[in-house]
């Protein structure tokens, strides 16, 4: 047995011992909820064991998680889409006794997608992809123009001169937006005036990426805090804060 295997065995024994103590003291009940708490803590610690190094327990939990998520999502698609949007409308119900026959068209197109699994008929799936891709592209264009281009350009340019006069913050924003767009125009050589403007754009981008980094650290730490709270408060029954 090597060092890592001994460490793993030690951790498993400690985990079992802690749970034994928690059950013996009545902190965890021997029911579905109590068992679930133990399983949840075990899953959490198994995943955290990856920080020490990749190991069989982490891999086991990781693969089980993938299977569980796939089945859960399949179940949601079945009940909330296939059953609700296809089977019930076609079969008719108490509110709408007449079947809605037009549902057959998207159902057939959708089942064409599944022909990707059948070698000779895979060309049928292209018909369905054509609908999804084409419709998605068509729906996107006017909405992007309206919601992103017009609605974003208007306040950028329009708020520089207000009823109270010149707004330096708004001018600063305009410089930022233009310089970033110039930076991303790679078909223009970044020399001379274009080079200077592009460098200003880089500074704005650096501030933005720094802010992103700060917020990303905040996000990841929040998740860690949540899991540590679960382990300490819900599993170990340590009242937080303790001191």
């Amino acid at each position: 047995m090597n060092k890592d295997q001994r460490l793993l065995l030690l951790v498993l024994i400690a985990f079992t011992g802690i749970n034994g103590i928690l059950i013996a003291t009545g902190s965890i009940q021997l029911d579905a909820k109590g068992f679930g708490l133990i399983v949840g803590a075990g899953v959490t610690l198994a995943i955290y064991s990856f920080l020490y190094g990749d190991n069989p327990v982490f891999k086991l939990v990781e693969h089980a998680y993938v299977g569980v998520v796939a089945a859960y999502e399949f179940a949601q698609v079945w009940y909330q889409n296939i059953l609700s949007d296809i089977i019930h409308p076609l079969a008719g119900n108490s509110d709408n006794p007449e079947p809605i026959w037009s549902i057959i068209v998207p159902t057939v197109l959708g089942s064409f997608l599944l022909t990707r699994l059948v070698g000779k008929a895979v060309w049928l799936s292209r018909l369905a992809f054509g609908l999804i891709v084409g419709l998605g592209a068509g729906l996107l264009i006017p909405r992007r123009i309206s919601a992103y281009l017009i609605q974003q350009i208007e306040p950028t340019v329009g708020s520089i001169f207000t009823s109270t006069g010149f707004d330096p913050n708004a001018a600063f924003v305009l410089i930022g937006v233009v310089s970033v767009l110039v930076y991303f125009s790679f078909s223009l050589e970044h020399k001379g005036v274009v080079g200077v403007v592009s460098r200003v754009g880089i500074w704005f981008l650096m501030v933005s990426f720094g802010a992103s980094f700060g917020y990303t650290v905040m996000a990841r730490l929040s998740l860690l805090i949540g899991q540590l709270t679960f382990l300490m408060q819900d599993w170990l029954h340590v009242p937080l804060p303790l001191f």
């Binding site: 708490l37 990781e62 998680y65 859960y72 650290v217 949540g226």
Partner: peptide
């Protein structure tokens, strides 16, 4: 299904992403 969701999917999903706190540091 509820048990599996509450005691496997939720803790595993949250913990997977919380690993990133360590990696980012």
């Amino acid at each position: 299904l509820g048990w599996i969701y509450d005691h496997i999917q939720v803790p595993a999903g949250a913990t997977m992403f919380s690993l990133l706190a360590f990696f980012i540091a």
